[in-house]
């Protein structure tokens, strides 16, 4: 009580002494107006409302109703909350906005989902090093499925060509282009491992990235500020940054999208593999698993004792990369 009175006194704007001389201009009158706190707040509120009104009004006289609607949607999108804090209604509003915005921009319709995790499902992945031949069908499928930027050749998956005899990523290359498999070489694919103890999510200053209950590490692209702390924190180089506005040809766009997955990104945000969340939460396997012609990629529910991934973990000598870091990747490698 005492405190608030003190602040009141501080905030109280003292009446300015009446200036002498010629009549004051409108601005001067406004600046020197005698004003108390309540009026100041009221004026500020009116100004804010007027600003918002201005934004709309700018499109009013000349623009089509579509342009007006687009401006409204973008305005609403700009102020939407972090996905983790959204109610179901807010989530569905957010995805409807994205669908409508794309429709307004391109005339084509997309389907954006905000489907949540399924109960008692924890996704895991296994990679058979003996089976990978370096064909890179997985990379192509991933780029197409996840609407990755074609201009910068973004790819979540890297295939590393190793000389037989050692597993050393410093001696391996991921820029090969020749007939595969090359004699005397073997191949290891890397991507986001969806660590159960992910270092990347802990460093995010805006909590724009987190691990979902089904184990998928996701990014809310609207809340990513592009600081790239997560990229520095990831020991596996699994995250990618959009240095420019991503380019996806309209005819190649995958219209089946998820808010936390393959929806269109903007310049200045980080993205990554989401185990194709738009597919996996639908019972499908990620695009890389489906595309692999040799069956080197295995995906399933770690909490289902009858799943293939569990059989691999129980019957094969599996290993993970940089296990000593304690990141607990849910991505295992094995050999026949």
């Amino acid at each position: 009580m005492r405190m608030s009175r003190k602040i009141d006194e501080l905030v109280q704007i003292q009446p300015a002494p009446a200036p002498e001389g010629p009549a004051r201009s409108g601005v001067e009158q406004l600046l020197n107006m005698q004003i108390d706190r309540r009026t100041a707040v009221a004026i500020a509120g009116t100004a804010l409302a007027a600003g918002a009104g201005l934004l709309n009004a700018a499109f009013n006289p000349f623009g089509a109703p579509e342009a007006k609607e687009k401006a409204k949607l973008e305005w609403a999108e700009f102020f939407q909350g972090n996905f983790q804090l959204m109610s179901e209604d807010e989530k569905s509003d957010a995805v409807r906005r994205l669908e409508r915005l794309y429709e307004l921009e391109s005339g084509k319709s997309i389907r954006v989902s905000a489907d949540g995790p399924r109960e008692r499902v924890l996704y895991g992945y296994a990679f058979n090093v003996s089976r990978c031949e370096g064909y890179m069908d997985c990379v192509r499928a991933c780029i197409q499925e996840n609407n990755q930027d074609r201009a910068s050749n973004m790819a979540y998956i890297r295939i590393h060509e190793h000389q037989k005899g050692e597993i050393n990523f410093e001696h391996a290359t991921d820029d090969f282009y020749h007939e595969v498999p090359a004699a005397g070489h073997f191949y290891i694919g890397t991507q986001c491992y969806h660590c159960q103890n992910p270092p990347c999510t802990k460093v995010c200053p805006t909590q724009a990235t987190w691990m979902e209950p089904d184990g998928i590490v996701v990014v809310d692209y609207n809340w990513c500020i592009g600081c790239r702390y997560c990229m520095a924190a990831c020991p596996y180089d699994a995250r990618r940054f959009n240095w420019t506005d991503p380019v996806v040809p309209e005819e190649e766009l995958n219209p089946n999208q998820h808010y936390l997955g393959n929806r269109l990104r903007k310049k200045g945000v980080v993205e990554k593999c989401t185990f194709c969340i738009q597919r996996s939460r639908n019972g499908q396997s990620p695009a890389c698993v489906e595309a692999c012609p040799t069956g080197a990629r295995i995906f399933g529910n770690l909490l289902d004792p009858d799943s293939e991934i569990r059989w691999v973990l129980q019957n094969k000598k599996v290993f993970r990369l940089k296990e000593d870091l304690g990141t607990e990747p849910k991505f295992w490698y094995f050999m026949d």
Partner: peptide, 12 residues
């Protein structure tokens, strides 16, 4: 068991 070969459809 699931370590060799290719699963069709999805994980479900």
């Amino acid at each position: 068991g699931g370590a060799h070969g290719k699963r069709l459809g999805g994980w479900a």
